[in-house]
Design a protein around this nucleic acid. Structure first.
Lengths: 205, 205
DNA sequence: ACGGTTCTCTACCAAATGGTAGACAATCTC
DNA sequence: GAGATTGTCTACCATTTGGTAGAGAACCGT
């Protein structure tokens, strides 16, 4: 076995490799559908090595979720900071920023969806992490609405609607396949443009 | 056991009770996360009685999916037929019709989402059933766009976007909870109104 | 009344699952 | 160089899973 010949110690990156594989598998197939053996096989280690880094499957799930939340917030915050001031343009910038990682790594938003399936309380930690982002978006929407630069509406529900649209598009390739969409470069650009047009129209005053 | 005292024969409705429980469980928690034992327990029968009606778990899944597709098409077709002629009003009528079953039985749209998780090919049958509905919606959108009564865009992707929005809202109570939404009568009405406003704005010319 | 059909059940089973115990080797500390 | 630490592994284990075999009760047609 190739791995055997490597020095096993010395600051192994095993933990991160496990997180990466687990993110993809959990995000695309769901927590219950993916076994520790599968993840270990994907990484190329024994299950017990995995359990050395994460004491239990629940531990691994938590770590994967925290990781994903951090990654998402980084992407979104960066996009917000370097975005133009007009709300619709800013929205489009964020979508542009999120679109590539979202479509190329559907697991990220897929994990967010999996939250509903976690035993109640297990997602508390996550919502705490994501809450600042959500409340910031809420107040921002509110002020822009009052300034007449966005359509009037309930900011909280608007957030949920935008999220549902983006997450749905990113995580349900099957639905896109049914309507005859092709996942190539052209298709991706068309999809992104249609998504931004859709949301611009939905939010324009 | 109470059930024991009933006559076991005589046109039992066991099959439908199994389908109903399986729909709810599969739709809300996913296929892999629900065991036959759980479904049987929910129905109040032994697992082997379940396996008498459905030869395997895959059989049960297929039956549940076909059932769901039929139910959805009935609701949608009925709403379309008894709807006004202007496209935005018609859309709103369909949403009104779908909204109650969708939110009160998230399992229906949840099942649709689960399709992505099925082994490739297992969903073929379903897409065949739903395809007529999708293509009809596509041609309808196209003609309305040409008549200038809807915003221009790619009809197929518009369908996917609308579906993503509705399905996401209906199947992710967790996301709504995060933005502080409450699932009571008032909340439901507010959500429905916001959803229709959102989609009207997104599709208006 | 009685043989076949329908329906539900108990008793198992092999495979997969999450997890424990502990051996063993490379490395670090001193 | 000795001993502790770190990281990976093999060998198990109890439980759960989807599924089989087959018994037996209630009903049906004749």
């Amino acid at each position: 076995m190739a791995r055997r010949s490597l020095a096993p110690n010395r600051r192994s990156d095993t933990r991160e490799r496990i997180l990466e594989s687990a993110t993809i598998l959990f995000g695309t197939r769901g927590f219950d559908s993916v076994s520790l053996d599968q993840i270990a096989a994907e990484v190329g280690i024994a299950k017990q090595s995995l359990l050395y880094w994460f004491a239990s499957k629940d531990d691994l799930i938590q770590a994967v979720l925290v990781n994903m939340a951090a990654e998402l917030t980084v992407v979104v915050e960066a996009a917000i900071r370097s975005a133009p001031d007009m709300p619709l343009d800013r929205l489009e910038a964020v979508i542009h920023a999120v679109f590539r990682p979202a479509v190329r790594r559907p697991a990220l938003l897929g994990l967010l969806r999996e939250l509903s399936r976690l035993p109640p309380g297990a997602a508390e930690h996550l919502t705490e992490i994501l809450n600042p982002l959500v409340t910031r978006a809420g107040t921002w929407l509110r002020t822009e609405m009052q300034a007449g630069r966005l359509r009037q509406g309930d900011p909280s529900l608007i957030i949920a609607l935008v999220y549902a649209t983006v997450a749905g598009i990113a995580t349900e390739p099957e639905a896109l396949r049914v309507v005859g969409w092709s996942q190539d470069v052209i298709g991706l650009r068309k999809l992104r443009n249609e998504l931004t047009s859709f949301l611009r129209a939905a939010l324009a005053p």
